[in-house]
Design a protein around this nucleic acid. Structure first.
Lengths: 208, 208, 208, 208
DNA sequence: TATGAATGAGTGTTCATTCAT
DNA sequence: TATGAATGAACACTCATTCAT
């Protein structure tokens, strides 16, 4: 806790990382407000109180900014560090499993418009889509593992198809979650869980 | 007398309407190739063998091109004219109902990359999202009507929520359909129908 | 009075002249609203309910439209036909002379924003300025003649300089007349006449 | 300490301010040559040996260029800094007062065709007219103050009307000054002064 | 005579990125 | 490390004018 600021050799790096964090914060804000395509790198720099030159000292392209931002989101989502998603896919009732998986994602998505934008804004050019994949791939792999615990005899290909369909459907439904007012949210959330529950329980039954 | 007033006015516009169709064809192609945001109006004009000025004689903005294109797609989808979607929502088995509803949309989506792009991919500035809505709204209303036939005692609000979730999920899954090779397509299609079938049958049971 | 419509051979020409008048009316309106530079020929045609092609059947360029409009204004001002300006420059008291000359011009300028725009809008490109000159030249020559009556022994060069200064000053003051509200107008008009009266009477004294 | 805070910030902008000056020089030249409306921002940039992007780093629009140019002219005219116009309006003979006021303006107008263009000629969209006003307003206020010294008992409204008429008349006469050859200039200048002298002395007499 | 489609160079402006300082 | 000036191709859109019908 203390060594971050006390170790003199790290000062430089610490400042740089602070700058980087500021730039990503600014990027998140501007992306969320204007969408990826309509966001200019100069606008990001300005929002971070930096010059374009500084921005490009940390990121080599607009795309890289989005990638780095997404990476940070994924870390914060807790997948990368495993903290928030240590879920026992095998024994939990399906409904509860869905709660444990979806609730934090929904909360995170609603709390981080930048994340939502990057995940759901289709304005994203193909190149960025690839950059974005790592995050989705992580989520996908995570869910696939959970599902594998639950349905061990399911052929992997079939299982992956099921998970892919579920993930894409959830992604499709994100705008509803973002658009929902605080009072509508529980209904919408519940309905989405119903849908996934119905699908996945049917798929598991098929597998059994 | 009827054609006396409609024909002569059209005669002058015959060339124009042909041009308009060519421009929309070109727009579809370029949108599909580069995405909405990265498509330039001059590129559309060039692809249609026309000058930018000509393009703007028929459409007042890039957005309007996308709107007009989407409108044409919707017409062709047959919703507007009711031809392809005259489905009896009440009596058909649910699985068959889903076939009848989804198969033409999937086929259309795969056959028309421009439609797919506009529906699932584009730079979607908020304005265009609104322009795109009419199509989605039509689809939504159409499905809502079918579903209303099937579950007449379902409170409308609840029903609309179910339909909205289903439509968004389907939309979310469109990229899988587009990405699938011809050999994977049946599997993917089948899985998606399974998912929707599971969800909707559960929802209908709840309602009963 | 009747022959305008009864003579059958003139029908064609009559229609053409009506069209031309409509086009000039439209031009006056659009010039007055947007200024010369920002007025598009298509806008003029549209305002006249005509097509660009039709417009160009009557006028060969935008400039020519402005010229024709100015010519029509000058005719209406009565200089060309001499009706409104038959003033005895020699015997009238100077103040009254100024009333007789200026009042109709001021009234006309305020009543015809198109005239005002063409006369006072400096947005006018050099080419048009030349086109505009004929009108000014007429006005100038007219005033010069009146002044020559009044001061016959003044060397022509000197006289022309005086008239030119007076005309330019009056032109400079037109925007004040246009901007003045109906209640301010008498004051402004009076002050302008005072200025010109002071100048011209001094000049005449010098000449004597 | 004083230069510690001002200098280092400037150091970076030294190049920029030089560029800005070059751009304004170029703008003046191109405006003077083609008029405001027909001047393209790219042409200004090119004339300054810069790229369009550079131009827009310093000015956010074409209009702003004209505004900045006019501001610079006004500063140079010396009104802003009071140097050239420190005139005692109360005691000087009127003729001499006019010399002192008009001569520098006439010289400046003739020496700076960009100034002349912006003041007397441009495409003057209403917006630019407002941008131009500051200059005219400064001149007006300056003259009004001088005139107030001279005629302290004149009611302010009346005084302002007189000054406004004089200023507008002078503005109207500028093109004559610009068009005059070097040999005609003294005559024209003299005549204009005669006109204003006659007007203003009459007005002052009225006031007494 | 009248239409309206067609033109295409040109407009003001933007922006991801680089570079001298 | 940080700045901000510089780039220049590209963009969406306009408009005076022409031409086929």
């Amino acid at each position: 806790m203390a060594d971050d600021t006390t170790k003199p050799a790290r000062k430089r790096q610490a400042r740089g990382e602070r700058r980087m964090a500021e730039l990503l914060d600014a990027a998140a804000e501007v992306f969320a407000t204007h969408g990826y395509a309509k966001t200019s790198t100069n606008a990001i720099a300005a929002a971070a109180g930096a010059s374009p030159g500084t921005l490009y000292q940390f990121f080599h392209s607009k795309q890289e900014i989005a990638e780095a931002l997404m990476t940070r989101y994924v870390e914060r989502l807790g997948i990368a560090h495993g903290s928030a998603f240590a879920i026992d896919g095998a024994s939990l009732p399906l409904a509860e499993l869905l709660d444990r998986v979806l609730d934090p994602i929904i909360a995170f998505d609603r709390a981080n418009p930048g994340f939502h934008t990057l995940l759901a804004d289709p304005g994203i050019t193909p190149e960025l889509a690839q950059a974005k994949r790592p995050a989705q791939k992580l989520i996908f792999q995570h869910l696939d593992r959970i599902f594998a615990d639950r349905a061990p005899h399911l052929p992997p290909d079939e299982r992956r198809l099921i998970v892919a369909v579920a993930v894409h459907m959830f992604r499709g439904v994100l705008p509803m979650l973002m658009a929902a007012g605080d009072n509508e949210l529980p209904n919408v959330t519940h309905e989405i869980k119903q849908a996934l529950h119905a699908y996945l329980s049917a798929a598991l039954e098929r597998a059994a």
